[in-house]
Design a binder for these strands. Structure first.
Lengths: 347, 347
DNA sequence: GTGCTGATTGACAACGTTGTCCAGAGGTTA
DNA sequence: TAACCTCTGGACAACGTTGTCAATCAGCAC
């Protein structure tokens, strides 16, 4: 007997199988399977022998084979824009927790806001036969998913709707949040308000712009097109856009920032300027209350978005063929100071 | 012919296989495999027929079966403390990027700083036969991994060393960073400096404490034990600890915060107090420069930690049996204001 | 025509697990 | 004693893919 606890009698890189365990315990293959899976119908004595063999060989069930046999992988895929974005941390974590409650693992990937990369990633996950997908879409056409959904991959879109297919969706109330934010600025006396948002092809960016326009229209204010800037959220572009609005022919007295990355850059730009400019940002962020003035934001509940999406996903996995659901998570205006600054006396 | 583009002739939840494709294209199973994998030796005409059948049936290769056959899963596991912690976002993303460059997917899990949960997660990943593991350990005994590593699972520990086994490790220079931070405070005239850190069983917490003590000792300053508090980073506890140090019999004039969560709470506590207290935090965070005063920090390069770890992992996967490596990533003191505040005149 | 070469193709086993089904042991009852 | 259960355990096929190997065929030199 040369086997050790590490199973070193087998060549490096290969692992003991149930067959090896069975041979060592002197039982049949299926009996090992029964013990490993806690199935009934094994005498305590036999079970002990099998357990000893498992420990001695360092056996670990090969889930690839199990998955192949059973069809379910007990894993779900999460495709988002950028794992490093603080908005997605709590969301991922919430999805993970729900997955864990259902005994599933989470496979994670960033699309980097690139439709091609999203599709590549999603299809790779489908090839792995994940049971379900949570997608924060970068693409605007998801027909490539039709065969997958038809084959039973539960799919939930989060934060932005699916493109050109019907599917479960969980959204934040971007429109309402943006409208409330801009109305808030208007209530504090502002008439010339700028909006800096994300790329227009991103759904939330469009919704927030719509909220902005609606609030302005509701107050009877005309929007000067030089007050609106959509595009990359790279600091340079945002800085340029903000500066242009603040120093333009009809300078804005307040800014509405379309997401957390924009807000952060806006805060930096405004900090450099002599006179205070009102600011409301979409998305809350850590320490928003400690900057001076504290930043008024429209807070989204990222964790709730993730939790809702994952719950919906598992409901669909368990259950029957209910038609696609759409759920909306409310947003909440959090006044902290920056949004309550009045316009300058001469503005 | 009742098959449609969705393969609806098959029952819901089941998917076409290579066998189905082969039958439809009128070729052998292996020929389909060759086409799917881009292997040579297939005439253009045959390839076209196979491709047509693939499209018509909505075939997608089942990677579970492929993995079972090939032995490599092209996936790596990442176990960290909390996906929602902003420190781990960039780290995860960096690991993901490297994995992507190597054609691997990332399976992600949070240990919630619970050793049992770490082990459960790691073993689940091993059962999936991930090719490698990147672990930010919560446990302090990793002997349970020995059979896995012996079986060829490339394993790299990040941010904290492995417990009771030899393994590849990538660490930040916690000791050096902490020492530099405290020396910085001392250079600005502080003599009574408090340290609030994470739970003492966490390696980095211990290293940072050691850095603190070393810097104090090097300056010939005795440490009053009421100035040191290790424990949970929950806001309540940190708040309590900070308040006790600031209002104690020998009140501190400066604080050194052991990680980003502590720093954030410390900033809040100090903001409520009438007179300024110097503060240096371990870990950088967004907007640290915009709080007033801006927060001096010891910055760690989380992305570089992740990148280095993942690179090391794939080097080991490709390569031979080099002995375990240990790499240290430097930290960097970023003075921004809060660390340069002098002690009060009467302090 | 024969034999050889190289290209194309397919039959078959194997990967490690689980579900189905059957065999044998041992006990109970008529 | 025979018939009939119950309980335990094992043989075998199947999951969908890939590696091995052999068969077929066209083209070509002799």
């Amino acid at each position: 007997m040369t086997d050790t606890a590490r199973g070193t009698s087998r060549r490096y890189g290969s692992r003991p199988t149930m067959k090896d365990v069975a041979a060592r315990a002197g039982v049949g293959l299926k009996t090992v399977s029964r013990v490993v899976n806690g199935e009934p119908g094994v005498t305590p004595e036999t079970e002990r022998r099998v357990q000893d063999a498992i420990t001695a060989l360092g056996f670990r069930r090969n889930d690839s084979a199990r998955i192949l046999r059973k069809g379910r992988t007990a894993s779900i895929g999460l495709v988002l824009e950028d794992l490093a974005d603080p908005f997605y941390g709590p969301l991922s974590r919430a999805v993970e927790e729900v997955a864990r409650d259902h005994g599933a693992l989470l496979i994670n990937g960033s699309s980097a806001e690139d439709p091609a990369r999203e599709q590549e990633l999603v299809l790779a996950l489908c090839a792995r036969r994940v049971d379900g997908l949570v997608i924060i879409p970068a693409a605007d056409d998801h027909r490539y998913l039709e065969p997958e959904i038809a084959a039973g991959v539960a799919t939930v879109f989060v934060d932005r709707p699916a493109g050109r297919i019907e599917a479960d969706t969980v959204l934040s109330d971007s429109f309402g949040g943006a409208r409330a934010a801009v109305a808030h600025l208007i209530a504090h006396g502002h008439r010339r308000i700028g909006f800096i948002g994300d790329q227009p092809r991103i759904h939330t960016a469009g919704e927030r712009l719509r909220g902005y326009r609606t609030a302005m229209a509701e107050a009877g204010l005309a929007v000067d097109e030089s007050w609106v800037s959509l595009g990359s959220t790279a600091p340079d572009r945002v800085r340029f856009a903000a500066t242009a609005m603040l120093d333009g022919p009809r300078p804005v007295t307040a800014l509405f920032a379309g997401n957390n990355r924009v807000t952060v850059t806006a805060v930096r730009v405004l900090a450099e300027r002599p006179r205070p400019v009102a600011l409301v940002g979409f998305d809350d962020f850590e320490l928003a209350d400690l900057v001076s003035p504290a930043i008024t934001v429209v807070a989204q509940d990222a964790a709730r978005l993730g939790r809702t999406a994952a719950t919906m996903l598992f409901r669909r996995l368990d259950g029957a063929g209910i038609p696609p659901q759409r759920e909306e998570i409310p947003t909440r205006l959090v006044p902290r100071g920056s949004g309550e600054l009045p316009p300058p006396a001469d503005g």
